[in-house]
């Protein structure tokens, strides 16, 4: 196999990738019902830290119009949000089998 001297994204000198492109490398079997639920939106609205947004490695928590928007589809089941939420406002579970993430090089 030859080595492509350009970087993976074709921009010379940078290997940076945005999160959506990185998540596109991950294999998922997405359940039609979420395995994680934010218990009370009001708690998130008034939360100052919004730590979930900082710690989630799959960017499942994003801020839109000052509100935390959560989507479960890209979740890698790591648990960082559950551990970091002081408000205990995350009803966290693993996806039902056989759904969720499958790593090949974990």
């Amino acid at each position: 196999m030859g080595i492509d001297r350009r970087c993976a994204q074709g921009v010379e000198g940078s290997m940076k990738m945005n999160i959506d492109d990185r998540l596109a490398l991950v294999k998922y079997k997405v359940d039609n019902r979420p395995h994680i639920i934010l218990k009370d939106d009001k708690v998130c609205d008034t939360c100052e830290g919004k730590y979930c947004v900082h710690v989630c490695p799959a960017s499942c928590y994003r801020i839109e119009n000052n509100r935390v928007i959560f989507h479960y589809e890209d979740c890698v089941e790591c648990g960082s949000c559950l551990i970091s939420c002081d408000k205990k406002n995350i009803d966290w579970n693993y996806p039902r089998a056989p759904y969720g993430v499958t790593f090949k090089f974990g």
């Binding site: 993976a8 490398l25 991950v26 890698v76 648990g79 960082s80 090949k104 090089f105 974990g106």
Partner: peptide, 8 residues
């Protein structure tokens, strides 16, 4: 790049 992964 082959894969991106994460865990606590």
């Amino acid at each position: 790049i082959k894969e991106y992964s994460a865990h606590a």
